[in-house]
Amino acid sequence: MEMVSLSAIHDAQKAERFSDLANLCDNLDLELASKGGELPEDWPYVIHLLGHILVSDLNSARFLWKRIPASVKQNQPELLAAWKIGQCMWTHNYSGVHEALHNFEWSHDVRPVVGRIAEDYSGRIFRLLSTAYSTISVTDAASYLGLSINDTIIFTGKNGWGFDPSSQMLTVHPLVTTVEQKLDASNLQSLTEYVFHLEH
């Protein structure tokens, strides 16, 4: 059972199905527990924790952190580094999240998962800024996005934002969201009848 569990998790990583990792680990964890078994010594706690962080399930990440044996926490610096990401997200420490993501030498297996978290997090923050602000200082934007001042100007410029060098302010270009509506035959018929009624 343990070998099946671990190979299933590794397979999901290799296939880059990172958003499946949390549920996969949880289900295998529960399956072992229901049979009276314990997690194997080589259980991928880092991947399990990052899986919850990736899907923004910080409550489950905190619960998992509390369950991890103290001896495991003490002997796995990478696990502590992963938990730091979750802590900063929980407290809305935006710059802290970026530091936690980028200031640790992640292992080969973990690096792609952290990369996906960084990408998704930056995207969420950019969308948040695009809806919450009409103008924002380039310094604040850089802190939120985890970029240098220059990279922030370039990145936001590519997304249609303006920059005033004299005030050091960015003018936010709101994101345009499109809602697709599908018309089936009955809807089209109703619309046709409605227009015909209006015209006659």
Rank of each mutant, 00 (worst) to 15 (best):
S7R: 04
D11F: 13
A12V: 13
Q13S: 12
A15T: 11
E16P: 11
D42N: 05
D42E: 07
W43M: 06
L50W: 06
L54K: 03
V55P: 05
D57P: 01
D57R: 02
D57S: 02
N59P: 03
N59I: 04
R62C: 07
F63Q: 08
I68N: 08
N75V: 06
Q76E: 09
P77G: 12
E78C: 07
G86W: 06
Q87A: 02
Q87M: 01
C88N: 03
H92P: 00
G96P: 03
S107L: 12
D109T: 10
R111Y: 14
P112N: 15
V113P: 04
V113H: 04
V113T: 07
V114Q: 08
I117P: 02
D120L: 12
G123I: 07
F126P: 03
T131V: 15
S134L: 14
T139K: 14
G146K: 02
G146R: 00
S148K: 02
D151P: 01
I153V: 13
G157H: 00
G157V: 04
W161T: 05
P165W: 06
T171N: 10
H173V: 09
P174V: 03
P174Q: 01
V176Q: 08
T177F: 01
E180K: 14
K182T: 09
A185L: 09
L188Y: 13
Q189A: 15
T192R: 13
T192A: 12
V195P: 11
F196I: 14
E199L: 09
